[in-house]
Nucleic acid binder design. Structure first.
Lengths: 347, 347
DNA sequence: CTGAAAGCGCTTACAG
DNA sequence: CTGAAAGCGCTTACAG
């Protein structure tokens, strides 16, 4: 590895001059001629700055700790990491990943390990939208939560706008002419359920469709989803069905097929997730909303680096992904899900 | 941050004594009493060694560069990263991840970035089993390929034993009494297709079942899979079907349902992938083999660190994941897929 | 405009 | 058994 010292002696200047030039801080301190010469020599010798030495000296590592419960194993949320990584790359940062496996002992071990490497900040990424307690050891570090919300409401948190997703999905059905719209939701009381349901109700209201409690069916994938799909077709006979997620939509598809009901012709279906493999398998193809995983990772890093380096530092990202923000306050950023049009809605 | 110097002055010894003690190199060099005292002081002051300083001094960072084409976005292969990470954690390493997005310019940019951080070695992880050309800039670094094979055959490569998977799957059907076994394969000529097919033939041979070319149906998911499933039931009437992957199995399920053929009763089906979401949806539940993603990541790190630090250093991992190795030579390590028994095979 | 020097926190010969 | 000192590659006041 060629060092600043090698260049200095080769170029016949001091190491400090080289350092100044390489960091573009030579303005009015090193003459242009010398600067150019130093750059040429560095180029010729294939100089690559040593981040480790710089980190030791400056205390800044340009390194981000990406902590996650198990996001990496999730079939779809790995995109959070990808978005984070892309933003980090563009900003001259690099991500150190740590998986906690929902184990708080492992978590603190990993946080300690990351600290030894002098990470400048942390990303705390979750598997799905929920509130979390940020470990107290992280309380004083720059940190941004991705796909979740700080329970204490203090740390910036980026998450999907599930209310809007529910609204957009329901509204899409209304625009297609549906009037009897079932919400095929989740019995588990997670944020996504609460908010998507709220969005469903708001869309009905805006559309002038009276809310009918009997059209709300909350099921569990593993137990009563199939039975309730059956009951729904028997008793409710909806013209539109908004499913909490793609997996639930498969039960609707299954039951419709059994009865010879054509989705996309006799009844409209929309859901949320745009799950690979499921969407490949369903016929007709499923219109669904995609969670903004990539955008959340990207935006989380944008905000994190802006905390670390200031707002100016992230201007190179322009406003990428920013247009996906649907609501924002001091600490919370909600991001819009995008609709993927396919063929499960009557035209 | 408390440093070695703080401890030294607090404990009334020199920094070198502290260093020796903290690194457990004090045997016959520092008295036990002093050593214990130093440890106590360090403990009390909450000392955490600074990896960055150590790296600068020793040239060793205990950091691994995890380079991947897009593994992180894959619905299932993120487990490679998880396995790698767990092994790294246990060995005192940490992973820096870089996504190349199949872009060789971005790849070399990322490799350079990782080098500046002094990574001790690289993991080159792929999305699926194939051969790759290792970038020449990596030729002289410790590197291990995960879920792929170095085209040049020089660098250690860990990949699934697809031949054995084909053998095990087919054999499972034979053991269930099947004699007319269709291979419902892939038209794409990837390694997995070549090897699983070879395993299918070997199992037939071992089972004393004559090979019949008309039982081999290679399809594309996106185009002719459904038609060929139809033709298969019409013309071939198999008693067992070995599917290249779970997605292909869904076409078999679909066609069987249409005809009132009961999978698991009238015909046996087995496949490969154990894909979440697909397996949740299919009824009866699908017996399938799981690719050793986690084990490949784990084993890749084990081999990489043994290159960097020597065989002894990885003994703390004992033989975890090693029992999954099915074949091995100088540079290649094939790992066994494990069968997940469910209800799609006639008992 | 340029250089000599200190120092980030550690490790490791070397001397005693 | 213990310490003083050099040095890893960089940055940054300070002096000129």
């Amino acid at each position: 590895m060629v060092s600043i010292k090698d260049i200095a002696s080769e170029a016949g200047v001091s190491v400090c001059t080289v350092s100044l030039v390489m960091n573009n801080k030579y303005h009015h301190r090193v003459s242009n001629g010398v600067a150019q010469h130093v750059r040429d020599v560095a180029q010729a010798m294939g100089y690559k700055p040593n981040s480790v030495a710089r980190t030791l000296r400056t205390g800044r590592s340009h390194t981000l700790g990406f902590i996650t419960d198990e996001i990496v194993t999730s079939p779809y949320a790995g995109r959070v990491l990808q978005g984070a990584q892309e933003a980090a790359r563009r900003l001259g940062y690099v991500c150190l990943v740590a998986n906690t496996n929902y184990d708080s002992q492992m978590e603190s071990q990993e946080i300690n390990a990351l600290r030894r490497y002098n990470v400048d900040g942390f990303l705390y990424a979750l598997m799905y939208h929920r509130t979390v307690d940020i470990p107290s050891s992280l309380a004083n570090s720059p940190i941004v939560v991705a796909d979740g919300e700080d329970a204490a409401g203090r740390k910036p948190s980026i998450f999907p706008d599930d209310e809007l997703a529910g609204y957009d999905a329901t509204n899409r059905l209304i625009k297609a002419g549906c009037r009897r719209i079932v919400y095929f939701g989740s019995e588990t009381m997670i944020i996504a359920q609460r908010d998507r349901y709220a969005g469903y109700r708001r869309a009905l209201k805006d559309g002038g469709i009276p809310f009918d409690e009997s059209l709300v069916i909350n099921v569990l994938e593993s137990t009563n989803a199939a039975d309730e799909a059956k009951r729904m077709f028997d008793e409710i006979r909806p013209d539109g069905i908004f499913c909490f997620n793609d997996v639930r939509a498969t039960f609707i598809y299954e039951e419709a097929r059994r009865r010879g009901i054509q989705i996309g012709t006799d009844v409209s279906v929309i859901s949320i997730d745009n799950q690979p493999f499921i969407i490949e398998v369903l016929k007709p193809s499923l219109t669904t909303l995609e969670l903004p995983h990539y955008a959340m990772g990207f935006e989380a890093v944008r905000q994190l680096v802006s905390i670390i380096d200031g707002e100016d530092a992230v201007s190179v990202l322009h406003d990428e992904c920013v247009e996906q923000i649907s609501a924002q306050d001091d600490t919370k950023t909600a991001m819009r899900c995008s609709i993927i049009e396919r063929n499960s809605i009557v035209t």
